[in-house]
């Protein structure tokens, strides 16, 4: 009797019709989930089979004998054209490219968003509109001018060149994210800090950035997914040795002579996709929270 509050005195009556509806809903959702998980299942099982087993067995069957040979091959032996070093070097290319590009574009987005949302200056709206417009420019349109730019800057075919391209292309989105987050923060905060003696950067650093964790997570996930998964910039602005993992994956899948090693292809595809998956798993909770943060506060 001591724990009254745990048992509500009146539980809302649930009609049988409602229960049936709920079951139907969940079955339907489960079905959709299965449908979308199917390819992943096939990829995973195929990557763990040997080539003979793939040729003899059914596509959806579980592997009779689990082997990681295909993974090893994909990581360090598969051929991408004339070289046969697997995905490993390209995977590191992608890391070296994505990490700085994500950090730089996120930081610039935060600074831009802060300025546009909290420091009313002449033309702030115009600049913001221009940046928004930048979000809607398709990759293909940027290719030629960007190639020329990178050439002029001496960055053609280098990882810094790719970082530059991704940072420029990403600023529109990151600015949008941060600007929309920062407009929900009352302007009195800036006024109070100004009276307290803090300047432009001090206010950004001490007051706005610490507030920004949810939107930083959103932006990092978004940018990382975009940049890691990018193929077009990767294939256009890199050369042998600086290609990102997506381009290498394509080369592995397309350049096999003779038998098609499906297990290696699948393993390589999973390896290439793993980091984005990992980022979602680690930060997904914050992602949802960050997306709704503005609306909950307002």
């Amino acid at each position: 009797m001591s724990d009254f509050s745990a048992t509500p005195a009146v539980s809302p009556p649930v009609r049988p019709g409602q229960i049936a509806l709920r079951w139907l809903l969940f079955s339907l959702l489960g079905l959709f989930a299965l449908f979308y998980l199917m390819p992943l299942f096939v990829m995973l099982t195929t990557s763990l089979k040997s080539l003979e087993e793939i040729r003899s067995g059914s596509l959806v069957a579980l592997p009779r004998e689990v082997t990681f040979d295909a993974w090893r091959t994909a990581w360090s032996e598969a051929c991408t054209g004339i070289q046969c070093e697997g995905l490993r070097p390209y995977f590191w290319n992608s890391v070296l490219l994505a990490v700085p590009a994500v950090l730089i574009s996120t930081f610039l987005g935060a600074a831009n968003g802060y300025i546009i949302a909290q420091w009313n200056f002449r033309g702030a709206n115009l600049i913001f509109s221009a940046m928004l417009f930048g979000c809607f420019i398709p990759f293909q349109v940027v290719l030629l001018p960007m190639a020329r730019m990178l050439g002029l800057m001496g960055l053609a075919g280098t990882i810094p060149g790719l970082i530059f391209a991704h940072v420029i292309y990403g600023i529109g989105f990151t600015t949008l994210f941060f600007r929309n987050f920062y407009v929900t923060i009352p302007g009195d905060l800036v006024k109070a800090a100004k009276v307290d003696g803090a300047g432009f950067f001090r206010i950004f650093w001490s007051i706005f950035l610490p507030l920004s964790l949810p939107i930083i997570v959103v932006t990092v996930i978004w940018q990382f997914t975009q940049i890691w998964n990018d193929f077009l910039f990767g294939v256009s602005f890199s050369q042998a040795g600086t290609q990102p993992v997506t381009v290498a994956l394509n080369n592995i899948v397309n350049s096999t002579t003779g038998v098609k090693e499906y297990n290696v292809d699948m393993a390589a595809a999973i390896i290439a996709g793993l980091p984005t998956l990992l980022v979602y798993v680690v930060a997904g909770k914050y992602f949802i929270r960050g997306l709704t943060a503005g609306s909950v506060k307002g």
Binding site: P186, D188, A192, L211
Partner: peptide
């Protein structure tokens, strides 16, 4: 300030 404007 009316809103207090405390640093959150």
């Amino acid at each position: 300030f009316q809103s207090y404007a405390l640093y959150p």
